[in-house]
Design a protein around this nucleic acid. Structure first.
Length: 413
RNA sequence: CGGAGUGUAGCGCAGUCUGGUAGCGCACCUGGUUUGGGACCAGGGGGUCGAAGGUUCGAGUCCUUUCACUCCGACCA
């Protein structure tokens, strides 16, 4: 895409209400725009990144055999009365009435809705196991929204629910989801730990959290210095690893994923049964698995930034390459940049062409702020058939002969 | 919800104590000169100061009420 045609309102000023680096940079680089407490608009760049992250999540879940559905955002309160959670969730639920006085709420999570969906369509053990997920908006009327996308009131979440004939099969799926989540977080370039956790308001027996390691994290976790064991501080009170007896160190993490072994609490409460191979009614044994997709964006930036701006990882970046035309009035620069732009696009590479009338300084600053991994600068040495490639993470500049340019760029994306 | 603070142009701020009818930087528009690290010169547009009420000849400034937002704490993907 051409920079001149996208809305990317970058700014030099730090917004006064942002303190967290991810919050500051996502706003300054024109990814998001806040408009009320805990509510954000995604601008074009933000929407592209959101879609990229979402695509990785979807790809891995689909590969694991889960199926995407889409449940309504607006849920009848009766679902929540039946499960008994309407009391437990309390004021975090945003409730309202329709014109007839019927009560509804905006879903903060969808166990009830999903159980109702399955209850109405699955009657036999022959249809099990089943893992259904969706990636859509959730609303939680947080006591205190803060930190930009980290703790918004409206946020994008992937929530999956699995249904099984027994506990053993649910455990198999739980482990599969743990592996799947690990692949997702790894693909997104995140440094994370899986920790034993408390199940909180969702309920259930065993649960594990996926923690993005970051000093700004709101959770304190204990991680083993020699094996992969980790636990939330609420769960682990010891000083040594229960797995290998090594020392446990405290560190901060951002909870970006949480998987639960639910058992039958929702199927019991909502009277959701299937017929087993003896023709006998049994409650579904369930698991539930969440990923904070919009929170992941914040987490990626918390882990990948410097004092100049964002540094997107390969699978999260809005564009793989940015081409900077140093001086838009130099026709040869425009011609050469456009040629490369077309070639890369024809190879299916996401490329951003900075064709604005600004000077070089403004363009390179925006490149650093936005954080696309690689830039090609078509500039003053073009007469000598030389252009420059800039690596965003190291800020290293490499001069490249024009003839080798395409190969060199392809090597980097 | 408890504590602290802030609302003045799109953004960042000054002006409020010591009332006299709104200012700076960035951004934006026009013209010109520039073009490798957020250019320069000239000209220009935009706000009645969160809202409501009150005091006063006169309120951004004083008083009352109210709303919103932010930060710290308990809660969460």
């Amino acid at each position: 895409m051409r920079f001149s045609q996208i809305l990317i309102p970058t700014t030099k000023e730090t917004p006064n209400d942002a303190s967290l680096v991810s919050h500051i940079y996502l706003i300054r680089a024109g990814f998001i725009q806040g408009y009320s407490s805990g509510l954000y608009n995604f601008l074009p760049l933000g929407k592209i990144v959101l879609d990229k992250v979402r695509a990785v999540v979807k790809d891995e879940l689909d590969k694991a055999g889960a199926m995407e559905v889409s449940l309504g955002f607006v849920t009848p309160s009766s679902f929540w009365k039946e499960s008994g959670r309407i009391e437990k969730y309390g004021k975090e639920l945003l409730r309202f009435e329709d014109r007839h006085g019927a009560e509804f709420l905006l879903s903060p999570t969808n166990e009830e809705s999903m159980v109702n969906l399955v209850k109405g369509s699955v009657k036999s053990y022959k249809n099990l196991p089943l893992n259904l997920y969706q990636i859509n908006l959730k609303f939680r009327d947080e006591i205190r929204p803060r930190f930009g996308l980290m703790r918004g009131r409206e946020f994008l979440m992937k929530d999956a629910y699995s249904f099984h004939i027994d506990n053993e099969d649910m455990l198999r799926e739980f482990n599969l989801m743990e592996d799947t989540y690990s692949r997702i977080f790894t693909r997104l370039g995140l440094d994370f730990r899986i920790v034993e956790a408390d199940s909180g308001a969702i309920g259930g027996s065993g649960s594990k959290e996926f923690m993005i390691l970051a000093d700004s994290g709101e959770d304190t976790i204990k991680v083993c210095e020699s094996c992969s064991y980790g636990a939330n501080i609420e769960v682990e009170t010891g000083e040594v690893c229960p797995k290998c007896n090594s020392k446990l160190n405290e560190t901060k993490g951002i909870e970006a994923g949480h998987i639960f072994q639910l058992g039958t609490q929702y199927s019991d409460a909502l009277d959701a049964n299937f017929l087993d191979n003896n023709g006998k009614a049994q409650p579904f044994v369930m698991g539930t698995y969440g990923i904070g997709v919009s929170r992941l964006l914040a987490g990626i930036i918390e882990q990948n930034h410097d004092d100049k701006g964002c540094i997107w990882t390969k699978e999260s970046t809005p564009f793989s390459v940015e081409i900077i035309i140093s001086n838009i009035k130099k026709k040869e620069e425009v011609v050469e940049a456009t040629k490369l732009y077309d070639e890369l696009k024809s190879k299916g590479i996401d490329v951003l062409l900075d064709d604005r009338r600004d000077r070089f300084g403004a363009k390179i600053k925006d490149f650093e702020l936005i954080g696309i991994p690689t830039a090609v600068v078509i500039g003053k040495k073009l007469g000598d058939k030389l252009v420059e490639i800039v690596d965003r993470r190291t800020l290293e500049k490499t001069e490249i002969e024009l003839d080798n340019l395409l190969d060199e760029v392809l090597k980097r994306v």
